[in-house]
């Protein structure tokens, strides 16, 4: 499936597949495997009986208990990262049938409704593989540090409530706060390139995830104290100017976060920041 097709694989098609799903069928899982960094990748296929309500996680669990390929060769359980299985922790992100998403919310009925249909699982493409479907997303968290994604409180002692906030403003911030740092937006972004050299992270494109989080903290009354620092980071190498406006990020975000709005808002802030710096003689 091409990228364009994957993106158009919408809710209607999934619903149609659900309606025609055959009970008691088996589905072929074609999984891209790799034993570790520097090791060659290989494909292995498994024939998995589909129980009611099966998703990618339950299928991988079945393979773990029955690690035999379709050719009858004994192999090892597949390695992947997961935790909450409720699509709120972001751990189990992988590329499924060509599209990056969480595997916990990926129902087999929606993707492989007929006997012998194929599900293709690959690791995320923009992060180094640790083993099989597990990738190292340390860079993604590093990028949160880059934009100082926190509210600089004075301390944890009792000092009364935080700043008051209007209902509408809270709703706007809440939409941004649901970001679970899964990295879908980065995997789909043509500008975000895989970078294994940690020393280059701080000058490589930061991606929609951290840009949107910078906006989230800039919008908080106390958080905005660090706005200048954030805008410095986002105005430099690998900052907002590297965005190519492909808008893939917003299409793959599982939480429907308005990422392109955030990129627009940070772009405007960057312009104002540059003008301020010019008049302050800093640049």
């Amino acid at each position: 499936m091409s990228e364009a097709e994957a993106y158009s694989y919408d809710a209607e098609m999934r619903k149609a597949n659900r309606a025609k799903a055959v009970a008691g069928r088996s589905v072929i899982f074609k999984i891209k495997r790799c034993d570790g960094p520097g090791k060659p990748a290989r494909w292995e296929s498994f024939k998995v009986p589909i129980e009611e309500g099966a998703n990618v996680i339950s299928s991988l669990n079945w393979i773990a208990a029955n690690p035999v390929t379709i050719e009858g060769k004994k192999t090892t359980p597949v390695v992947w990262e997961s935790n909450c299985l409720e699509e709120v922790c972001g751990a189990c992100t992988m590329v499924i049938n060509g599209r990056v998403r969480q595997s916990c919310s990926c129902l087999i009925n929606e993707y492989a409704p007929c006997e012998g249909d194929v599900m293709t699982l690959e690791p995320m493409s923009k992060f180094p593989v640790i083993r099989d479907l597990w990738v190292d997303r340390a860079r993604l968290f590093n990028n949160l540090t880059r934009v100082k994604a926190w509210v600089p409180i004075d301390g944890t002692y009792n000092m009364g409530p935080g700043p008051k906030e209007s209902h509408d403003h809270q709703q706007m911030r809440y939409a941004l706060s649901e970001c679970m740092s899964c990295g879908c937006c980065l995997d789909a972004c043509p500008q975000f390139i895989k970078e294994e050299d940690e020393s280059k992270w701080d000058s490589s494109f930061i991606g929609a995830h951290a840009i949107s989080q910078a906006r989230y903290f800039n919008e908080h009354e106390t958080g905005k104290q660090l706005k200048a620092d954030r805008m410095d980071a986002l105005s430099g190498a690998g900052g907002i100017n590297d965005c190519g406006n492909a808008q893939n990020c917003v299409k793959v975000c599982p939480k429907g976060i308005p990422l392109t709005e955030s990129i627009g808002a940070i772009g405007r802030s960057a312009t104002i920041h540059a003008i301020k710096q010019f008049f302050q003689g800093k640049k």
């Binding site: 935080g162 209902h167 809440y174 706060s177």
Partner: peptide, 16 residues
């Protein structure tokens, strides 16, 4: 109060 100061987006009433 502490969580509020840390920026948790607690739901707000009409008056904030």
């Amino acid at each position: 109060d502490l969580l509020d100061r840390m920026g948790v987006p607690f739901n707000r009433s009409n008056e904030g």
